[in-house]
């Protein structure tokens, strides 16, 4: 069997003809396998959804109980059979519940990484490399300029700023699912014990992370707190809230943004933030190239992001590679 027969690109996304299922389809289908809970991968309205229990829970929180006709939980590492194709979910290190999906059929093994990273993250299982024939990688940060700095340095920038400007409320924009909880957990690991205030949009996801055993410490809602209480504190909110009327409740806020894009100076200025933190849930260039070398696939297929540079690197290193023209979008809030 040829790999292109096991997995093809369709208008709805990646499709596995022998198994009769899609992976992360962007429109409702009969049978979907979902890598993780971010909205561009997990959509509502499929007849059957297979994902990790945590991804299913997150979809339920975001879309409501009727988000799919039927759901089936897949545990990390369990061998499953979907329409005759051997399927396995393996940790991707991206966010809580995120998985790579391993497909095996007639001696061909494909790994669909979904979104993944190798940087430390106290809120999810670390990425597991799986040897394969075809490795499908994302390339959100697939350019040599993206070498994300050590996480501890970025957290240090935030805690230092809180010390230097103790009268200003540090309002940090962070993607509501994954990034926000990771930022909180990293602050706690770094010894920041003060209450952290959050935007209402984070409340249910935070509670879910805590129910899954992830310590977030003293978390309070911005809506229940006074400007006085929040002075000098860290506040975490969805990035869009920073440009919103919502910001007016703080006295002299110091806006920040936690994102992999913050490494680029023009992007910082564009965002209009005072404290850029380069913190990404996607793989950066050194880890991307190291991961490909480690897995040693026969061929690499590159999805959303900067496919061109990743394909070029593979060619230079004697690895067959091609871009997959998947309809994705630039993950601005990442």
């Amino acid at each position: 069997m040829r790999a292109s027969e096991l997995l093809t690109v369709t208008d709805s996304g990646l499709y596995c003809p022998p198994g009769g299922f899609y992976i992360d389809p962007d429109r409702p289908v009969d049978r979907a396998l979902v890598t993780h809970g971010h909205a561009d991968h997990a959509r509502s309205g499929h007849a059957h959804v297979m994902a990790t229990q945590q991804t299913l829970d997150i979809m339920k929180i975001r879309y409501g109980a009727g988000f799919a006709g039927a759901e089936q939980a897949a545990s990390y590492g369990n061998d499953l059979n979907v329409g005759g194709v051997h399927v396995k979910f393996v940790p991707a290190g991206h966010i809580l519940g995120a998985a790579q999906i391993v497909l095996e059929f007639e001696g061909v093994r494909i790994v669909v990484s979904g979104d993944y990273k190798r940087a430390p993250d106290p809120t999810c299982e670390p990425f597991e490399p799986v040897p394969c024939d075809i490795f499908i990688t994302e390339a959100t940060f697939g350019l040599p300029v993206f070498s994300h700095p050590p996480v501890v340095e970025e957290i240090g920038k935030l805690t230092t700023s809180v010390t230097d400007f103790p009268e200003r409320t540090h309002v940090i924009g962070a993607y509501s699912l994954g990034k926000a909880q990771r930022l909180i957990a990293l602050l706690r690991d770094n010894g920041h014990d003060a209450p952290i205030f959050v935007h209402g949009a984070l409340e249910r996801l935070n509670a879910y992370y805590v129910s899954q055993g992830i310590e977030l410490g003293d978390i309070r809602l911005v809506a229940n707190s006074s400007a006085e209480e929040m002075r000098g504190a860290v506040v975490i909110a969805p990035p869009s809230a920073l440009g919103d009327r919502w910001m007016r409740r703080f006295d002299d806020p110091l806006p920040g943004f936690a994102s992999g894009w913050m490494q680029i100076r023009a992007r910082r200025r564009q965002r209009g933030v005072e404290l850029p933190l380069t913190l990404s849930d996607h793989i950066d260039w050194p880890d991307l190239t190291a991961t490909i070398s480690e897995i040693g696939p026969g061929e690499v297929w590159v999805t959303h992001g900067r496919e061109e540079a990743t394909v070029r690197w593979c060619e230079l290193n004697g690895i067959k590679a091609q871009p997959l023209s998947l309809l994705g979008f630039e993950d601005e809030a990442e």
Binding site: L143, P144, V145, F146, I264, R306, A309, R312, W313
Partner: peptide
């Protein structure tokens, strides 16, 4: 240290020579 094509792709994205070199 870096393939000229990868450098050009990087420079195109960043738009500033000093910043590109500092990052790659």
């Amino acid at each position: 240290h870096i393939d000229p094509i990868l450098f050009r792709l990087s420079y195109d994205y960043v738009g500033d020579l000093a910043e590109t070199v500092s990052l790659v």
